[in-house]
């Protein structure tokens, strides 16, 4: 628990926290003109080829990640990425508005009866880590940019995607929400592979799903 709180406070203070995974769900947000991919069609067993970042990008663009990494101020929910109901807004600390903080509804675990998802330090990624509308190049650049990512090194990022409970939630998202297209272990492996291969940003213009 202590670790968890440190993560929260760090992200609040630095304004650059890095929260990969997300909340609950509306389409049509300005700046998000990506097509709605068919997540179930992804073949999880096929070894990933091509650009080392493509596999990472595919996960980061999954609704479980992207819903709470919006480029605007409203989180998304659901596999169809609807705007979060109730007029939920980012707020000053990426933690919702007063009286509507994320933890007004989201606990540290999923609640099946109320159908409210939850994980420790449930919150939005900071605006600097809004990924909607970015191609693979810009996404990679954003990830690596210490002025945007909470002053994290590549190793810090790897640690984060490996262990942060909010990241891990993405693979245990509760009923009615699909997990990312590959397992968490495969994701970590792909992330490490990207770093080990030089953490290059793909050429502009490619968007991997």
């Amino acid at each position: 628990m202590k670790t968890v709180f440190r993560v929260v406070s760090a992200s609040l203070v630095l304004g650059g926290g890095f929260t990969v995974l997300s909340c609950v769900a509306e389409s049509g947000d300005p700046g998000d003109d990506a097509p709605s991919p068919n997540w179930t069609s992804v073949d999880r067993d096929t070894p990933q080829v091509g650009d080392p970042f493509a596999t990472v990008a595919r996960v980061l663009r999954h609704p479980r990640c992207l819903n709470c990494h919006p480029s605007g101020d409203v989180p998304k929910v659901g596999d169809d990425r609807r705007l979060h109901a109730m007029g939920v807004r980012r707020g000053d600390h990426n933690f919702g508005m007063p009286a509507m903080h994320c933890n007004a509804c989201h606990r540290s675990a999923n609640q099946e009866a109320a159908q409210v998802p939850g994980a420790p330090h449930w919150q939005l990624a900071p605006r600097s880590m809004g990924w909607e509308g970015l191609d693979d190049h810009d996404l990679a650049e954003t990830l690596k940019d210490r002025s945007k990512n909470g002053d994290r090194s590549l190793e810090d990022l790897l640690h984060h995607v490996s262990e942060d409970p909010l990241v891990l939630w993405g693979w245990d998202p509760g009923v009615g929400r699909s997990p990312p297209p590959i397992s968490h272990a495969q994701f970590v492996k792909a992330f490490r592979h990207w770093i080990d291969s030089g953490a290059a940003s793909p050429a502009p213009g490619t968007t991997s799903y």
Partner: peptide, 26 residues
């Protein structure tokens, strides 16, 4: 019963929460 309407709002340790979706163990 699903934290959608706010009628059940109370404060827990100073924070507004929806008590219909707040298991007592917390």
């Amino acid at each position: 019963g699903r934290a959608l309407c706010g009628a059940c709002t109370v404060h827990v340790d100073g924070q507004a929460v929806r008590s219909c979706a707040y298991p007592i163990e917390y």
